[in-house]
Design a protein around this nucleic acid. Structure first.
Lengths: 140, 140
DNA sequence: CTGCATGCAAACCGTTTGCATCCCC
DNA sequence: GGGGATGCAAACGGTTTGCATGCAG
C-alpha cells in the first residue's frame, strides 16, 4: 500500500558515507561522520553529509537515532533494536534486548494514534564511566 | 545510597513555571512554557525558564522528555510513563501502556551498563493528522 | 551583607538552506 | 543539454552563558 523506499541514486559521496558508517559500531553523529568521510573525500561539504544522511534514513538504508542528548546519531545496522546512552559521556551502544512486539500491539489498542513504530532508549552508566565515578568517590 | 534530590529554593519564577506546566497535559517546549509564564510574569527571561526547567528536572520535580524532534519537552507528571509523538505535527501525548519492568530487568542482565532508567517513545500519526492525510489522499 | 537568582543580550552549536557550479544520464 | 547532487557559506532555531543588577535570607 505505501512505498517505504523510493530508491535513490548511489553517488560517490553517498557510498562513502555509507561505508564509513558501516565500519563503526559507535552510532556517530553527523559531524563525527563528516570527519571520517573527509579523510577520503577532503572536499565534501558538511551540508552534503547532512542531506544524505537524512535521505538515506528516509529510504531505510540507515537508521536515524533521535534519542536524548542534543545531536542525532546514525546507525548502519537497520534491524530493529534498542539503544542505551551513557548519561555521563553520551556514548550510545546497542542494547541486547529482544524487541517487544507486545509493546506495539498494546499501544495500537490503547491509543487513537496510528502507530508507526517505537524505540526504547535506556539510560545508564557505561563501564568506563562507572570506573571513573567509583574512583572519584573513593578518592575525594 | 545516592541522593537524587538535592533540594532547591522555590522562587516566584520557579513556582509559576511549575504551576503553568502542571496546568497543561501537552508536554510543552521551553519556549511554549515561556509564553505561558510571561502572561503572569511579563519580565521573566527565556534564560530563566531554561535554567529552572533544567534544575527542576535534575531534582525530579518535573520530567524532561528528550525524544525525537528537535526540542526538549517537559512534563509535570513525573510518574513513569511512555510517550507518543506524531510524526506529522510533532505533538506529544502520554501513552496509555503499562510500564514494563521486565524490560529493565532483561536489560540489566544483558548489559555491562549500570541501568538507570528507560523510556519508550512511539511514533505515529495523531487522529487529527490522520484526517488531514486521508482528506489529502482522496482529494489530490 | 552575601550569594544565589534574575533579566538581558550575546554567543554557541547543530542543522538547514540558497545558490552557483558540477557531473551524470 | 537538463536535472539532480555537490561545495560553500550564510542563515536559522533552540539552548546556553556572561554579566550587571536585584532580592531573599
Amino acid at each position: 500500500m505505501n512505498t517505504p523506499t523510493p530508491m535513490i541514486r548511489l553517488t560517490t559521496q553517498r557510498q562513502i558515507i555509507l561505508e564509513e558508517l558501516a565500519k563503526v559500531k559507535t552510532h556517530p553523529t553527523a559531524s563525527e561522520l563528516y570527519d571520517m568521510v573527509r579523510q577520503r573525500l577532503p572536499r565534501i561539504g558538511l551540508g552534503t553529509v547532512y542531506r544524505n544522511l537524512e535521505l538515506m534514513a528516509e529510504n531505510g538504508m540507515i537508521l536515524k537515532i533521535e534519542v536524548g542528548g542534543t545531536q542525532k546519531r546514525f546507525d548502519a545496522f537497520t534491524d530493529p533494536h534498542y539503544h542505551i546512552r551513557c548519561s555521563a559521556c553520551g556514548k550510545v551502544d546497542d542494547m541486547e534486548v529482544p524487541v517487544i512486539d507486545e509493546l506495539v500491539n498494546s499501544a495500537a489498542q490503547n491509543s487513537p494514534y496510528q502507530i508507526l513504530g517505537h524505540h526504547v532508549e535506556f539510560t545508564g552508566v557505561c563501564p568506563r564511566c562507572q570506573k571513573k565515578h567509583n574512583h572519584a568517590a573513593t578518592t575525594h
